[in-house]
């Protein structure tokens, strides 16, 4: 317990300095929600613990590989049993695991708390696009379908690929910054999965059932994700794009949506 506690402690202090350097090339994307931040730190902690164990175990193995060679005149010992050692290397890992499970448990409970959202949005997976319904909160009643907007020519290579190749859509999801957004997922045909890495949110969308998850984005910006459950031919071509905007900009967007819907109805 002590050992793992200390390990966890030293790991956490490293994380604090490390998370500022977040690079999405070798690591998780830079987190913009508290959940994603916890996942990021949890992963870093795990990585450090595993790296320490790795160095220790394989340090011993490679020491042995280089020292205990026949060519170096090593003579084989004949020990082949030690109950003490066996018990020791059963018990110590158990304590290390408890040290890992503890912070993970807290995060799980935190992630599952979908209560009291400011806005509820339903994401429906179709083959192969996402549909969004704003069910509750400011913007209630808005609904649209979100398709991949990368032109076919870029995919086939007759045109240069744009910066957000395969991660851009015609109608992005817009949410206000700092507000708790609850995402309900469902699907109309096969299982899809709604994932925005920067939010630490991934939830399967299952036909005939709803599932829920949530996020509260701390920073304005454009965040991109993909469908991550194999859903047929164009599984790779149904991205998710979320625009996190200020409260004012969000109200303007809602007004515009409502107006265009009214105009459409009038026609």
């Amino acid at each position: 317990m002590n050992l793992s506690g200390r390990l966890a402690g030293s790991g956490l202090s490293l994380i604090v300095s490390g998370s500022a350097l977040a690079q999405s090339r070798y690591n998780f994307q830079e987190p913009v929600t508290s959940v994603a931040e916890q996942l990021y730190d949890l992963h870093t902690l795990m990585l450090i613990i595993c790296a320490v164990i790795f160095v220790a175990v394989f340090g011993v193995m490679f020491w042995s590989v280089f020292k205990h060679r026949k060519s170096r005149g090593a003579v084989a010992a004949n020990f082949h049993e030690s109950t003490t050692v066996e018990i020791l290397w059963t018990i110590i890992p158990v304590f290390i695991l408890v040290g890992m499970a503890w912070p993970a448990t807290r995060t799980i409970l935190y992630m599952k708390d979908t209560s009291s959202p400011d806005i509820t949005i339903k994401a429906t997976g179709y083959q192969w696009k996402w549909g969004y319904d704003y069910l509750q909160g400011e913007g209630e009643g808005i609904r649209f379908v979100s398709n991949l907007s990368t032109p076919r020519e870029q995919i086939e290579g007759s045109e240069a690929k744009g910066e957000h190749y395969l991660l851009e859509v015609d109608n992005p999801v817009v949410v206000p910054v700092g507000k708790k957004v609850r995402i309900l997922t469902t699907a109309s045909d096969v299982i899809h999965s709604w994932w925005v890495p920067a939010f630490g949110v991934k939830q399967d969308a299952i036909p005939g059932f709803i599932r829920d998850t949530w996020f509260r984005a701390d920073r304005e910006g454009i965040y991109r994700g993909n469908c991550v459950e194999l859903c047929g031919k164009d599984h790779g071509y149904m991205p998710i794009e979320v625009h996190v905007v200020s409260a004012e900009a969000y109200s303007q967007w809602v007004a515009k949506q409502v107006a265009s819907k009214a105009a459409l109805a009038a026609n």
Partner: peptide, 25 residues
């Protein structure tokens, strides 16, 4: 996570087998 324990035991046993042996590769 518990599965890591017996798996670890196996790896440790292999390394202990190599330890102070007279190895050829």
């Amino acid at each position: 996570m518990l599965i890591a324990v017996p798996t670890g035991v196996k790896v440790f046993n292999w390394i202990a087998t190599m330890w102070r042996g007279s190895m050829t590769f």
